[in-house]
Simulated assay, not measured.
Amino acid sequence: MSDPRLTLWHKAVIENDSELLRDLLDENVSFHSPTVWQPKEGRDITHFILSMVNDIFQDFTYHRQWIDGNNMALEFSAAVKGKQIKGIDLIRWNQADKIVHFEVMMRPINGLQLMLDEMTMRLEKGGFLKS
């Protein structure tokens, strides 16, 4: 039996449903990117980043998933500017079924560098980073 939170998460990602994605995020969600040391805090920046990543990734596919109560690990693959990447999304939910912690791990380093370059450019344009 599938976890209803995971069903909603897949719907938000696969259908690129920005409103549903935002609804799934707790106001104080902590986002841990593979490209920066300090986490990004809050719904606005996390929603912006996740929406941006959904736009950057090509051929995004989830493969395996592990669920332990409110904790989930989702293995994925995608391409960034033609470079294949693999990764893991680590998601923690609260009792209100909102995402409170989102951490991403990716490899290989050359795909991660392409991701960093693209994200930095978009975060600067979005006003979240100063150039």
Rank of each mutant, 00 (worst) to 15 (best):
M1P: 08
D3S: 03
P4S: 06
N16M: 12
N16T: 11
N16W: 13
D17A: 05
E19Y: 09
L20N: 05
L20G: 08
L20V: 09
R22I: 10
D23G: 01
E27I: 01
N28G: 02
S30C: 04
F31D: 00
F31T: 00
H32Y: 06
S33M: 02
T35F: 07
W37S: 04
K40H: 02
K40N: 00
G42P: 00
R43K: 06
R43I: 00
D44A: 00
I45A: 01
T46Y: 00
H47T: 04
I49F: 02
I49T: 01
N54S: 15
Q58M: 14
F60T: 06
F60I: 09
N71K: 13
M72A: 13
L74T: 02
F76P: 05
A79S: 12
V80I: 13
K81Y: 14
K83R: 15
I85Y: 08
I85S: 04
K86N: 11
G87T: 08
I88T: 13
R92E: 08
W93F: 06
K98D: 14
V104I: 11
P108R: 02
P108G: 04
P108N: 05
I109Q: 12
L116C: 11
D117N: 15
E118T: 15
M119D: 10
T120C: 10
T120K: 13
T120W: 14
M121A: 15
M121Q: 15
E124H: 06
